[in-house]
Structure formats: structure tokens, C-alpha cells
């Protein structure tokens, strides 16, 4: 595993909920990223975020990590959940809350 992949694994596994996005939750640089941050805020869960625009190695590396070609990407307890469309559908169906807060079900 390359150094960047090892670093990504470490940061993903050390944060219960982590969103890789363009920009930050307060200043998203892309509508898809902005929507995913809003969804997590609506779920009222604390989450870490990584701005992939700040580092092209992270931007490329995260796509390889999950074998997923686009950003944003959500990881919960080390598992890749999906991008914006998956999060939106899971939020609407209530499945996202079950993933984010399994103890409350």
C-alpha cells in the first residue's frame, strides 16, 4: 500500500464519521459536497471533513481508496457509504440515520 493510501486508511479509521468533500461544510465549493454536509448536519452527528481541493494527492488517492470515481465520499466507522445521491436517498428513506446512529434504533 502506498503512503497516501496508508494515510487515508489511518484518517478514515480514526474518525467515526468522515466526509471527503470539495471545500468545507461552511464553505463548500461544489453543490454535491454542500448537500452532503447539510445532510450530516441535519442528522445531528458530529463529523470530520477533509477538503480534497487542498491536496491533489488526497483528491486522487481517495478515488482509488474506495474505487469510486467522484467526490464527495462518506465513510462511517471505516466503511465507505456512498456519494451525494446515495446519501440523499438513504437520508430520505431513514437508512442513513440507522447507519450513523445504530444505537438509537
Amino acid at each position: 500500500m502506498s503512503l497516501i493510501q496508508e494515510k487515508l486508511k489511518e484518517v478514515i479509521e480514526s474518525n467515526e464519521v468522515i466526509l471527503f468533500m470539495k471545500g468545507s461544510p461552511d464553505f463548500p465549493q461544489c453543490g454535491f459536497s454542500g448537500r452532503t454536509a447539510q445532510i450530516l448536519e441535519a442528522c445531528e452527528v458530529p463529523f470530520a471533513s477533509v477538503d480534497v481541493l487542498a491536496d491533489s494527492a488526497v483528491r486522487d488517492g481517495i478515488k482509488e481508496y474506495s474505487n469510486w470515481p467522484t467526490v464527495p465520499q462518506l465513510y462511517v466507522r471505516g466503511e465507505f457509504v456512498g456519494g451525494c445521491d446515495i446519501m440523499t436517498e438513504m437520508y430520505e428513506s431513514g437508512d442513513l440515520l440507522k447507519v450513523l446512529k445504530p444505537e438509537s434504533n
Binding site: P28, Q29, C30, G31, S33, G34, D85, T88
Partner: peptide, 11 residues
């Protein structure tokens, strides 16, 4: 199907 979000200008 759901609408796509609006652009925020980052790209």
C-alpha cells in the same frame, strides 16, 4: 428522480 444541487463555483 431527484434534482441535482446547484453549482457553488469551485470547479
Amino acid at each position: 428522480s431527484n434534482d441535482s444541487p446547484l453549482c457553488l463555483g469551485g470547479e
